[in-house]
Design a protein around this nucleic acid. Structure first.
Lengths: 188, 188
DNA sequence: CTCGGTATTGACTGACTGGTCAGTATCCAT
DNA sequence: ATGGATACTGACCAGTCAGTCAATACCGAG
Protein backbone atom coordinates (compact mmCIF):
# COMPACT_ATOMS: atom_id res chain seq x y z
CA UNK A 1 0.00 0.00 0.00
CA UNK A 2 1.22 3.47 -0.89
CA UNK A 3 -0.12 4.81 2.40
CA UNK A 4 2.36 2.77 4.42
CA UNK A 5 5.34 4.33 2.75
CA UNK A 6 4.09 7.84 3.39
CA UNK A 7 3.23 7.09 7.01
CA UNK A 8 6.68 5.59 7.54
CA UNK A 9 8.64 8.49 6.06
CA UNK A 10 6.51 11.36 7.37
CA UNK A 11 4.69 10.03 10.41
CA UNK A 12 0.94 9.76 10.89
CA UNK A 13 0.02 13.35 11.67
CA UNK A 14 2.21 14.84 8.96
CA UNK A 15 0.78 12.61 6.26
CA UNK A 16 -2.09 14.26 4.42
CA UNK A 17 -4.83 12.02 3.11
CA UNK A 18 -4.78 13.97 -0.12
CA UNK A 19 -1.17 12.87 -0.60
CA UNK A 20 -2.03 9.28 0.17
CA UNK A 21 -4.78 9.46 -2.43
CA UNK A 22 -2.49 11.01 -4.99
CA UNK A 23 0.23 8.43 -4.34
CA UNK A 24 -2.34 5.68 -4.87
CA UNK A 25 -3.60 7.47 -8.00
CA UNK A 26 -7.16 7.74 -6.75
CA UNK A 27 -9.32 10.65 -5.71
CA UNK A 28 -9.39 12.18 -2.27
CA UNK A 29 -12.76 10.75 -1.35
CA UNK A 30 -12.18 7.12 -2.25
CA UNK A 31 -10.39 5.99 0.91
CA UNK A 32 -13.42 7.06 2.93
CA UNK A 33 -15.56 4.47 1.16
CA UNK A 34 -13.32 1.75 2.59
CA UNK A 35 -12.16 3.26 5.89
CA UNK A 36 -14.23 5.22 8.36
CA UNK A 37 -11.50 7.82 8.88
CA UNK A 38 -7.78 8.44 8.82
CA UNK A 39 -7.19 6.52 12.02
CA UNK A 40 -8.95 3.42 10.73
CA UNK A 41 -6.87 3.58 7.58
CA UNK A 42 -3.79 3.76 9.77
CA UNK A 43 -4.78 0.71 11.76
CA UNK A 44 -5.67 -1.22 8.63
CA UNK A 45 -2.33 -0.43 7.04
CA UNK A 46 -0.47 -1.64 10.10
CA UNK A 47 -2.38 -4.84 10.72
CA UNK A 48 -2.11 -5.76 7.06
CA UNK A 49 1.63 -5.11 7.07
CA UNK A 50 2.17 -7.27 10.15
CA UNK A 51 -0.29 -10.08 9.63
CA UNK A 52 1.23 -11.96 6.71
CA UNK A 53 4.91 -11.97 7.71
CA UNK A 54 4.03 -12.92 11.27
CA UNK A 55 2.08 -16.00 10.19
CA UNK A 56 4.89 -17.11 7.90
CA UNK A 57 7.49 -16.69 10.63
CA UNK A 58 5.61 -18.66 13.26
CA UNK A 59 5.00 -21.71 11.17
CA UNK A 60 8.54 -21.55 9.80
CA UNK A 61 9.68 -21.97 13.40
CA UNK A 62 7.15 -24.65 14.23
CA UNK A 63 8.23 -26.82 11.34
CA UNK A 64 11.95 -26.39 11.97
CA UNK A 65 14.24 -29.27 12.82
CA UNK A 66 17.99 -28.89 13.16
CA UNK A 67 20.63 -27.33 15.35
CA UNK A 68 19.72 -24.36 17.52
CA UNK A 69 22.39 -22.30 15.85
CA UNK A 70 20.81 -22.88 12.47
CA UNK A 71 17.40 -22.06 13.89
CA UNK A 72 18.78 -18.80 15.21
CA UNK A 73 20.26 -18.05 11.82
CA UNK A 74 16.93 -18.85 10.21
CA UNK A 75 15.05 -16.60 12.60
CA UNK A 76 17.36 -13.69 11.94
CA UNK A 77 17.25 -14.27 8.20
CA UNK A 78 13.46 -14.32 8.44
CA UNK A 79 13.48 -11.01 10.24
CA UNK A 80 15.75 -9.61 7.57
CA UNK A 81 13.46 -10.48 4.71
CA UNK A 82 10.57 -8.94 6.63
CA UNK A 83 12.65 -5.89 7.44
CA UNK A 84 13.64 -5.36 3.84
CA UNK A 85 10.13 -5.74 2.52
CA UNK A 86 7.95 -2.63 2.32
CA UNK A 87 6.20 -3.82 5.47
CA UNK A 88 9.43 -3.46 7.43
CA UNK A 89 8.69 0.20 8.01
CA UNK A 90 5.93 -0.48 10.50
CA UNK A 91 8.40 -0.95 13.32
CA UNK A 92 9.54 2.64 13.08
CA UNK A 93 6.00 3.81 12.56
CA UNK A 94 4.61 2.10 15.63
CA UNK A 95 7.43 3.13 17.91
CA UNK A 96 6.85 6.71 16.87
CA UNK A 97 3.07 6.72 17.18
CA UNK A 98 2.50 4.35 20.10
CA UNK A 99 1.65 7.21 22.41
CA UNK A 100 -1.12 8.47 20.15
CA UNK A 101 -2.61 5.05 19.36
CA UNK A 102 -2.75 2.93 22.47
CA UNK A 103 -4.76 0.13 20.93
CA UNK A 104 -2.45 -0.15 17.93
CA UNK A 105 0.45 -0.27 20.34
CA UNK A 106 -1.19 -2.99 22.40
CA UNK A 107 -2.02 -5.00 19.31
CA UNK A 108 1.55 -4.77 18.08
CA UNK A 109 2.93 -5.71 21.49
CA UNK A 110 0.96 -8.90 21.89
CA UNK A 111 0.96 -10.03 18.26
CA UNK A 112 4.47 -9.14 17.22
CA UNK A 113 6.81 -7.79 19.85
CA UNK A 114 6.10 -10.26 22.63
CA UNK A 115 5.71 -13.18 20.25
CA UNK A 116 8.93 -12.38 18.44
CA UNK A 117 10.87 -12.17 21.69
CA UNK A 118 9.30 -15.41 22.77
CA UNK A 119 10.53 -17.18 19.65
CA UNK A 120 14.09 -16.08 20.29
CA UNK A 121 13.83 -17.04 23.93
CA UNK A 122 12.64 -20.48 22.89
CA UNK A 123 15.65 -20.94 20.67
CA UNK A 124 17.97 -19.89 23.48
CA UNK A 125 16.31 -22.26 25.89
CA UNK A 126 16.54 -25.10 23.38
CA UNK A 127 20.21 -24.37 22.80
CA UNK A 128 21.18 -24.16 26.46
CA UNK A 129 19.27 -27.33 27.33
CA UNK A 130 20.99 -29.30 24.60
CA UNK A 131 24.36 -27.96 25.74
CA UNK A 132 24.94 -26.29 22.39
CA UNK A 133 24.94 -22.84 24.06
CA UNK A 134 26.55 -21.82 27.35
CA UNK A 135 24.19 -21.35 30.32
CA UNK A 136 22.36 -18.00 30.34
CA UNK A 137 21.43 -16.20 33.54
CA UNK A 138 18.34 -14.41 32.24
CA UNK A 139 17.06 -15.91 29.01
CA UNK A 140 14.08 -13.61 28.40
CA UNK A 141 16.17 -10.47 28.77
CA UNK A 142 19.03 -11.90 26.73
CA UNK A 143 16.55 -12.58 23.92
CA UNK A 144 15.66 -8.90 24.05
CA UNK A 145 19.29 -7.90 23.85
CA UNK A 146 19.66 -10.03 20.74
CA UNK A 147 16.55 -8.75 19.00
CA UNK A 148 16.99 -5.07 19.71
CA UNK A 149 19.86 -4.44 17.30
CA UNK A 150 17.72 -5.93 14.56
CA UNK A 151 14.79 -3.66 15.35
CA UNK A 152 17.04 -0.67 15.77
CA UNK A 153 18.79 -1.29 12.48
CA UNK A 154 15.42 -1.40 10.78
CA UNK A 155 14.48 1.95 12.26
CA UNK A 156 17.88 3.48 11.58
CA UNK A 157 17.88 2.45 7.95
CA UNK A 158 14.64 4.38 7.43
CA UNK A 159 15.50 7.49 9.38
CA UNK A 160 19.10 8.47 10.03
CA UNK A 161 20.89 6.33 7.47
CA UNK A 162 20.33 8.72 4.55
CA UNK A 163 21.86 11.56 6.54
CA UNK A 164 24.82 9.72 7.96
CA UNK A 165 27.89 11.07 6.24
CA UNK A 166 30.14 8.15 7.23
CA UNK A 167 27.59 5.81 5.76
CA UNK A 168 29.57 2.77 4.77
CA UNK A 169 27.41 0.38 6.78
CA UNK A 170 25.66 -2.05 4.49
CA UNK A 171 22.97 -4.48 5.58
CA UNK A 172 25.28 -7.36 4.82
CA UNK A 173 28.01 -6.05 7.05
CA UNK A 174 25.60 -5.34 9.84
CA UNK A 175 23.89 -8.72 9.86
CA UNK A 176 27.23 -10.47 9.61
CA UNK A 177 28.70 -8.58 12.56
CA UNK A 178 25.56 -9.08 14.59
CA UNK A 179 25.43 -12.82 14.06
CA UNK A 180 29.14 -13.14 14.72
CA UNK A 181 28.83 -11.17 17.94
CA UNK A 182 25.80 -13.10 19.13
CA UNK A 183 27.24 -16.52 18.44
CA UNK A 184 30.50 -15.64 20.17
CA UNK A 185 28.54 -14.74 23.24
CA UNK A 186 26.35 -17.83 23.19
CA UNK A 187 28.94 -20.54 22.62
CA UNK A 188 30.25 -22.33 25.73
CA UNK B 1 11.91 21.96 28.97
CA UNK B 2 8.24 21.04 29.02
CA UNK B 3 8.13 21.09 25.22
CA UNK B 4 10.54 18.18 24.98
CA UNK B 5 8.30 15.88 26.93
CA UNK B 6 5.31 16.67 24.76
CA UNK B 7 7.27 16.27 21.55
CA UNK B 8 8.57 12.92 22.75
CA UNK B 9 5.22 11.47 23.74
CA UNK B 10 3.11 12.86 20.89
CA UNK B 11 5.54 13.61 18.06
CA UNK B 12 6.25 16.95 16.46
CA UNK B 13 3.20 17.38 14.24
CA UNK B 14 0.73 16.18 16.85
CA UNK B 15 2.02 18.55 19.52
CA UNK B 16 0.05 21.81 19.62
CA UNK B 17 1.95 24.91 20.59
CA UNK B 18 -0.96 25.88 22.81
CA UNK B 19 -0.33 22.73 24.83
CA UNK B 20 3.37 23.43 25.05
CA UNK B 21 2.55 26.90 26.35
CA UNK B 22 0.07 25.56 28.87
CA UNK B 23 2.52 22.93 30.09
CA UNK B 24 5.11 25.66 30.59
CA UNK B 25 2.49 27.84 32.31
CA UNK B 26 2.86 30.71 29.88
CA UNK B 27 0.60 32.18 27.24
CA UNK B 28 0.31 30.98 23.69
CA UNK B 29 2.18 33.93 22.22
CA UNK B 30 5.24 33.92 24.43
CA UNK B 31 7.27 31.24 22.67
CA UNK B 32 7.12 33.30 19.49
CA UNK B 33 9.11 36.06 21.15
CA UNK B 34 11.99 33.63 21.61
CA UNK B 35 11.63 31.31 18.59
CA UNK B 36 10.78 32.31 15.09
CA UNK B 37 8.34 29.45 14.67
CA UNK B 38 7.47 25.94 15.77
CA UNK B 39 10.28 24.37 13.80
CA UNK B 40 12.90 26.63 15.41
CA UNK B 41 11.55 25.74 18.83
CA UNK B 42 11.88 22.09 17.89
CA UNK B 43 15.50 22.47 16.83
CA UNK B 44 16.33 24.48 19.93
CA UNK B 45 14.80 21.85 22.19
CA UNK B 46 16.82 19.11 20.55
CA UNK B 47 20.18 20.85 20.44
CA UNK B 48 19.80 21.88 24.07
CA UNK B 49 18.90 18.34 25.10
CA UNK B 50 21.91 16.89 23.32
CA UNK B 51 24.56 19.52 23.90
CA UNK B 52 25.23 19.20 27.62
CA UNK B 53 25.29 15.42 28.02
CA UNK B 54 27.46 15.03 24.94
CA UNK B 55 30.13 17.39 26.24
CA UNK B 56 30.19 15.61 29.59
CA UNK B 57 30.52 12.21 27.96
CA UNK B 58 33.40 13.16 25.68
CA UNK B 59 35.61 14.62 28.36
CA UNK B 60 34.71 11.77 30.72
CA UNK B 61 36.24 9.47 28.12
CA UNK B 62 39.22 11.67 27.43
CA UNK B 63 40.20 11.76 31.07
CA UNK B 64 39.69 8.06 31.66
CA UNK B 65 42.51 5.76 32.73
CA UNK B 66 41.98 2.12 33.59
CA UNK B 67 41.04 -1.20 32.03
CA UNK B 68 39.06 -1.25 28.81
CA UNK B 69 36.33 -3.26 30.47
CA UNK B 70 35.87 -0.57 33.09
CA UNK B 71 35.84 2.08 30.39
CA UNK B 72 33.13 0.17 28.58
CA UNK B 73 31.14 -0.07 31.79
CA UNK B 74 31.62 3.64 32.34
CA UNK B 75 30.48 4.44 28.85
CA UNK B 76 27.32 2.39 29.20
CA UNK B 77 26.61 3.82 32.63
CA UNK B 78 27.03 7.28 31.15
CA UNK B 79 24.54 6.47 28.45
CA UNK B 80 22.14 5.20 31.05
CA UNK B 81 22.15 8.38 33.07
CA UNK B 82 21.59 10.35 29.89
CA UNK B 83 18.85 7.97 28.82
CA UNK B 84 17.05 8.26 32.11
CA UNK B 85 17.23 12.04 32.20
CA UNK B 86 14.43 14.01 30.57
CA UNK B 87 16.75 14.58 27.61
CA UNK B 88 16.82 10.86 26.90
CA UNK B 89 13.65 11.17 24.86
CA UNK B 90 15.36 12.94 21.96
CA UNK B 91 16.55 9.67 20.50
CA UNK B 92 13.02 8.51 19.87
CA UNK B 93 12.02 11.96 18.72
CA UNK B 94 14.77 12.28 16.15
CA UNK B 95 14.35 8.80 14.75
CA UNK B 96 10.68 9.54 14.24
CA UNK B 97 11.06 12.97 12.68
CA UNK B 98 14.31 12.61 10.75
CA UNK B 99 12.46 12.46 7.46
CA UNK B 100 10.72 15.78 8.08
CA UNK B 101 13.76 17.62 9.44
CA UNK B 102 16.81 16.76 7.38
CA UNK B 103 19.09 19.31 9.00
CA UNK B 104 18.17 18.21 12.52
CA UNK B 105 18.88 14.66 11.44
CA UNK B 106 22.25 15.62 10.01
CA UNK B 107 23.15 17.57 13.13
CA UNK B 108 22.26 14.63 15.33
CA UNK B 109 24.20 12.22 13.13
CA UNK B 110 27.46 14.09 13.21
CA UNK B 111 27.30 15.39 16.79
CA UNK B 112 25.84 12.41 18.58
CA UNK B 113 25.29 9.25 16.62
CA UNK B 114 28.62 9.08 14.79
CA UNK B 115 30.58 10.40 17.73
CA UNK B 116 28.97 7.98 20.16
CA UNK B 117 29.73 5.03 17.93
CA UNK B 118 33.26 6.29 17.57
CA UNK B 119 33.75 6.30 21.32
CA UNK B 120 32.65 2.69 21.61
CA UNK B 121 34.83 1.71 18.67
CA UNK B 122 37.78 3.37 20.36
CA UNK B 123 37.23 1.34 23.49
CA UNK B 124 37.02 -1.87 21.46
CA UNK B 125 40.21 -1.03 19.62
CA UNK B 126 41.99 -0.24 22.86
CA UNK B 127 40.81 -3.51 24.37
CA UNK B 128 41.81 -5.69 21.44
CA UNK B 129 45.21 -4.06 21.11
CA UNK B 130 46.00 -4.62 24.77
CA UNK B 131 44.84 -8.23 24.44
CA UNK B 132 42.10 -7.71 26.99
CA UNK B 133 39.44 -8.46 24.35
CA UNK B 134 39.49 -11.14 21.67
CA UNK B 135 40.25 -9.98 18.12
CA UNK B 136 37.26 -8.45 16.32
CA UNK B 137 36.76 -8.77 12.59
CA UNK B 138 34.85 -5.53 12.04
CA UNK B 139 35.26 -3.11 14.94
CA UNK B 140 33.12 -0.25 13.66
CA UNK B 141 30.15 -2.48 12.96
CA UNK B 142 30.56 -4.37 16.22
CA UNK B 143 30.44 -1.06 18.05
CA UNK B 144 27.10 -0.44 16.37
CA UNK B 145 25.81 -3.82 17.43
CA UNK B 146 26.72 -3.00 21.02
CA UNK B 147 25.17 0.46 21.03
CA UNK B 148 21.94 -0.39 19.29
CA UNK B 149 20.30 -2.27 22.15
CA UNK B 150 20.92 0.76 24.33
CA UNK B 151 19.30 3.11 21.86
CA UNK B 152 16.46 0.72 21.23
CA UNK B 153 15.77 0.25 24.90
CA UNK B 154 15.56 4.00 25.27
CA UNK B 155 13.00 4.20 22.50
CA UNK B 156 11.08 1.19 23.72
CA UNK B 157 10.80 2.49 27.26
CA UNK B 158 9.09 5.59 25.94
CA UNK B 159 6.77 3.96 23.45
CA UNK B 160 5.77 0.33 23.77
CA UNK B 161 6.77 -0.36 27.36
CA UNK B 162 3.57 1.03 28.90
CA UNK B 163 1.46 -1.22 26.69
CA UNK B 164 3.44 -4.39 27.09
CA UNK B 165 1.37 -6.73 29.19
CA UNK B 166 4.28 -9.03 30.08
CA UNK B 167 6.16 -6.03 31.29
CA UNK B 168 8.50 -7.36 33.90
CA UNK B 169 11.59 -5.92 32.26
CA UNK B 170 13.23 -3.36 34.50
CA UNK B 171 16.10 -1.11 33.47
CA UNK B 172 18.35 -2.87 35.94
CA UNK B 173 17.67 -6.27 34.45
CA UNK B 174 18.15 -5.00 30.94
CA UNK B 175 21.46 -3.25 31.52
CA UNK B 176 22.75 -6.19 33.47
CA UNK B 177 21.86 -8.69 30.75
CA UNK B 178 23.27 -6.42 28.09
CA UNK B 179 26.60 -5.95 29.81
CA UNK B 180 26.84 -9.63 30.60
CA UNK B 181 26.12 -10.55 27.00
CA UNK B 182 28.56 -8.02 25.58
CA UNK B 183 31.43 -8.97 27.87
CA UNK B 184 30.94 -12.67 27.17
CA UNK B 185 31.30 -11.93 23.50
CA UNK B 186 34.34 -9.71 23.87
CA UNK B 187 36.49 -11.79 26.21
CA UNK B 188 39.12 -14.00 24.56
C1' DC C 1 3.65 58.30 42.88
C1' DT C 2 4.72 58.56 38.03
C1' DC C 3 6.58 57.64 33.97
C1' DG C 4 9.14 54.89 30.38
C1' DG C 5 10.18 50.83 28.92
C1' DT C 6 9.89 45.89 28.84
C1' DA C 7 7.61 41.37 29.29
C1' DT C 8 3.51 39.00 28.63
C1' DT C 9 -1.10 38.05 27.21
C1' DG C 10 -4.96 35.85 24.63
C1' DA C 11 -8.52 37.03 21.18
C1' DC C 12 -8.21 36.92 16.41
C1' DT C 13 -7.12 35.46 11.50
C1' DG C 14 -5.75 33.01 7.57
C1' DA C 15 -4.35 28.84 5.77
C1' DC C 16 -4.75 24.17 5.75
C1' DT C 17 -6.81 19.55 5.91
C1' DG C 18 -10.02 15.79 7.47
C1' DG C 19 -14.27 14.45 6.07
C1' DT C 20 -18.88 14.85 3.13
C1' DC C 21 -21.81 14.22 -0.67
C1' DA C 22 -24.11 15.53 -4.93
C1' DG C 23 -22.88 14.29 -9.09
C1' DT C 24 -20.37 11.60 -13.00
C1' DA C 25 -18.30 7.58 -15.15
C1' DT C 26 -18.22 2.66 -15.82
C1' DC C 27 -20.07 -1.64 -16.35
C1' DC C 28 -23.24 -5.34 -16.81
C1' DA C 29 -27.72 -7.72 -17.46
C1' DT C 30 -31.60 -7.67 -20.06
C1' DA D 1 -29.92 0.33 -26.63
C1' DT D 2 -31.29 1.11 -21.77
C1' DG D 3 -31.90 1.01 -17.11
C1' DG D 4 -29.92 0.53 -12.98
C1' DA D 5 -26.40 -0.55 -9.88
C1' DT D 6 -21.86 0.15 -8.48
C1' DA D 7 -17.30 2.63 -8.34
C1' DC D 8 -15.33 6.74 -8.17
C1' DT D 9 -14.67 11.93 -8.25
C1' DG D 10 -13.43 16.55 -6.54
C1' DA D 11 -15.64 20.94 -5.07
C1' DC D 12 -17.04 22.19 -0.78
C1' DC D 13 -17.61 22.73 4.38
C1' DA D 14 -16.30 22.91 9.16
C1' DG D 15 -12.93 22.52 12.49
C1' DT D 16 -8.24 23.20 13.93
C1' DC D 17 -4.01 25.38 14.80
C1' DA D 18 0.33 28.13 13.72
C1' DG D 19 1.35 32.61 14.00
C1' DT D 20 0.08 37.97 14.89
C1' DC D 21 -0.53 42.09 17.43
C1' DA D 22 -3.13 45.56 20.01
C1' DA D 23 -3.80 45.78 24.74
C1' DT D 24 -2.31 45.05 29.47
C1' DA D 25 0.59 43.87 33.46
C1' DC D 26 4.85 44.53 35.53
C1' DC D 27 9.02 46.75 37.16
C1' DG D 28 12.67 49.81 38.25
C1' DA D 29 14.45 54.60 38.30
C1' DG D 30 13.77 59.19 39.53
Amino acid sequence: MAALELFVTRGFAATKLADVARAAAVSKGLPYLYFKNKEELFKAVITEAIGGPLAEATDMIDRFEGSSEDLLRGLIAGFRTFEESPAGGVVKLILAEAGNFPDVARFFCTHFDARGRHLFARVLRRGTESGEFAPIADIETTAIVIVQPLAMFSVWRRSLAPFDASNNLTSDRFYEAHLDFVLKSLRP
